[in-house]
Design a protein around this nucleic acid. Structure first.
Lengths: 233, 233
DNA sequence: CGGCGCCTCGCCAGATCTGGGGAGTTGGAA
DNA sequence: TTCCAACTCCCCAGATCTGGCGAGGCGCCG
């Protein structure tokens, strides 16, 4: 563990994660181990030991949107055994049989991880064995897996291009208040009232914030302020 | 560690976290240890060993919005030493001196944790000592602290009333597209055009999404959709 | 001391959004 | 099969937001 974490912290390119995860798979003697982002906007990243054919098929078929592992983890915080997810829908069962046909193990354990700006990733271990064996494996290694998930995500966030620099001009205190109140549903009039200023002054803040954030309208400005973590809602 | 985690997993009431965190403070022989949600909508929860006077003052003064620990962690994924945060603003320095006056240690280490629906919490250790001592303490215990943060949050999420029943009604695909495009600055007309539907139909989606999200207006709906991770921008 | 950023205020017209009606098709779930 | 959620379309009036004009005071920094 110590070695792996140190390697993750030292890593300078995303590609290194691939060899680390392969090493981990062998170390824990499981069929597969996978780390991947989940995002709908297209910026995919993942590393792991799944058959590339399966990965391609998975993405191609849009399984991301029906996979109970993804959907289930998205609403949970704790690691989850695949057996405990909801496989009742037809699409989910079709996905499962397709997965089995591509050599994915019958057992799985996935850990959801979340970063800033709504970033979401999964760290998954999969294997073929009976329930008892799997239960003892996950109970024994759960903490290791949580930490690995954490460090994989940390490294991926650090190395992901476009995540780091972004000068992100800060907002003035009044602008922050304005954006925050707008984000919680206040109208301009209500915000102005809450801040005890004229509505016109408020508009100046909104426009100023919009300019700083490079936003096209108020909604855009609020969205950007949130995405950049400038306001806490 | 094993005992504590087992206690956290067994806990049936939020109050138990308080005694656990006190035990941990003594175990690690630090001045203070704190776990708390961060949200502006009022649903506060926290447990820890800070002087209640300081906690009350912190909330009362709205320090949540200017605390570099909160703001800094909100934009990060990894644990962070307080020294590495941006204390340059006047408000931040005022907060720090106020904290010191209330007996908060000069050293601190905070771990951001994120759960479903944009939930955000902090797990913090604070102490009074020199930089070297603190550095070795954090390096030695970082992994423990990450795991503790994780299990504290897991327990808090499990026990928090109102977190469980509300499965956060999902948005339909069209609603997601609508919210996403609005979040990137499109006007209603532009969104309708992009989606090749009438502007009226678009309005139906916006209103429907607003209803599902319990939002008061479009900006609020977009903000909530983002906060709950329903859209990725 | 002269900028520069922040905070504050006013007016107006046109663009945009919101709220309240009603209505038909389709595909998947019970 | 029946039902429901999702998707699509239309009108109108009033509320709200946006864009563009201008103006003054305060505090900080070089």
């Amino acid at each position: 563990m110590d070695d792996v974490i140190a390697r993750l912290e030292r890593a300078e390119r995303l590609e290194e994660l691939q060899s680390i995860i392969e090493w981990l798979r062998d170390h824990y003697a499981v069929d597969d181990m996978v780390y991947h982002w989940v995002s709908s906007n297209g910026t995919q990243y993942g590393c792991g030991t799944y058959d590339p054919k399966w990965v391609a098929r998975y993405l191609d078929q849009g399984y991301l949107r029906i996979d109970p592992v993804v959907l289930g983890c998205y609403q949970r915080f704790h690691p989850v055994d695949w057996k405990r997810l909801d496989w009742s829908s037809k699409a989910a069962r079709a996905l499962m049989s397709d997965a089995v046909a591509h050599g994915i193990g019958n057992q799985g354990y996935s850990i959801p991880i979340r970063g800033p700006n709504g970033q979401f990733a999964l760290f998954t271990v999969s294997h073929t064995c009976d329930d008892e064996t799997w239960k003892s494996f996950t109970e024994l290694n759960r903490r290791d897996l949580i930490l690995l998930a954490h460090y994989f995500n940390q490294t991926a966030l650090r190395l992901e291009p476009g995540r780091t620099p972004e000068p992100t001009q800060a907002l003035s205190p009044r602008e922050v208040e304005t954006m925050t109140l707008l984000a919680v549903g206040y109208s301009r009039a209500q915000v102005a009232d809450t801040l005890s200023i004229s509505e016109h002054t408020l508009r100046v803040y909104i426009e100023s914030a919009r300019f700083k954030l490079g936003a096209l309208n108020t909604t855009h400005a609020v969205a950007r302020a949130m995405a950049r973590g400038l306001i806490v809602v």
